[in-house]
Design a protein around this nucleic acid. Structure first.
Lengths: 191, 191
DNA sequence: CTAAATCTGTCAGTAGCTGACATCCAAGGC
DNA sequence: GCCTTGGATGTCAGCTACTGACAGATTTAG
């Protein structure tokens, strides 16, 4: 890995950190890209060479989550039911959230009450869905004609549970146990 | 009702129709607000006096759906289970979709494969959620501490089912039976 | 060491969206 | 019928996110 790739990553994280700092301090919509660029000491044009959109400075961290969930799902036994497999596949992700919870909670809270960001978040979630649907389709015992719709519904419902659990967890400042919140959501949906 | 309110509604629908026509013909993102304004014969500034955003020219029709669902839900017996009540509350909405299906299908298809619009759609859906959660919370038999989370999860999952069913219905050109698609999604989630 | 590939800032431009202001037309009281 | 008042309109100027093009510096590869 050359020096080039190294500085590139360094600049990228520096932009993200400066952006989050300004967002938390002054609000997302009130913070302009020019201000972020000035804080880092580069031109605003260069900022857009590292992040395709302003939204991505916040939700960029969630890019790998879909693949992570899909990978975890692939390790589950083939005959495990869709819901059980999904629930287990989420555990590593929950652990990751709890790891450096301060940063994650800050972003989660910001995502929760900044309407302009909700769209970006749900766009990411849609891509997670795509990554999970093929595996789940195989686990469902429904005729092929209905299989795709059924899989999409199950995956979507599971991600709704995840989202709501994380939201409540972030709202509580990370005090409530995340895994139990998720179980509450899942059992409510399946009851 | 004075002449003022009359012309106001007329202009609003005229803008929406012209916009949809151009969107279908040339694509949503390729169509500029100036072009819509020119097609109607007014200034682009005035367009924004009738629609807060360009997105709203497409999703504005969905504004009343949340209240409609909530009203239908209120008519269901108090002791009916959450899922059954939700499913029944959706029937009038399905009928409304089928009524003038051509227009509805066109908008549904456009919503499905225009990423820029998905955010707006999900923002609306979030507001539907708010309208339904209080009623559903009353129907769940869970301790009060978990009730809100559980209700949000159930409502969110139900709306995911609705969304996926409508998407598939629109993709099929309205040929597949919408109610059965919804049932497929719901039973898959609850299985 | 040279040549190709990158990164950078600057500039100009587009689209969505907003505020301010002057103008004009309908609504309602007299 | 008149006149005041409030809503609707167009124009203009401006902000912000974002993009393409260009030229200059730097780094990597051969």
């Amino acid at each position: 890995m050359g020096l080039r790739e190294l500085t590139r990553r360094a600049v990228r994280t520096q932009i993200a950190e400066a952006a989050m700092e300004l967002f938390v301090a002054n609000g997302y919509e009130e913070t302009t890209v020019d201000e972020i660029a000035a804080a880092v000491g580069i031109s605003s044009r260069s900022v857009f060479r590292y992040f395709p959109t302003k939204e991505d400075m916040v939700v960029g961290l969630l890019d790998g989550v879909g693949d992570g969930l899909a990978a975890a799902l692939a390790t589950r036994p083939r005959d495990e039911s869709a819901w059980v497999a999904l629930r287990h596949a989420m555990t590593p992700h929950l652990d990751d959230l709890i790891r450096d919870s301060d940063r994650k909670i800050a972003t989660a809270v910001m995502l929760a009450d900044t309407p302009a960001l909700r769209g970006a978040l749900l766009a990411k979630r849609a891509r997670w869905e795509e990554a999970l649907v093929p595996d789940i389709a195989r686990r469902l015992k429904v005729p092929p004609a209905r299989r795709d719709l059924a899989a999409r519904a199950v995956v979507g419902a599971a991600l709704v549970c995840l989202n709501n659990a994380v939201d409540e967890w972030a709202r509580s400042g990370g005090t409530k146990p995340l895994a139990k919140l998720l179980d509450t959501a899942v059992t409510a949906v399946r009851g």
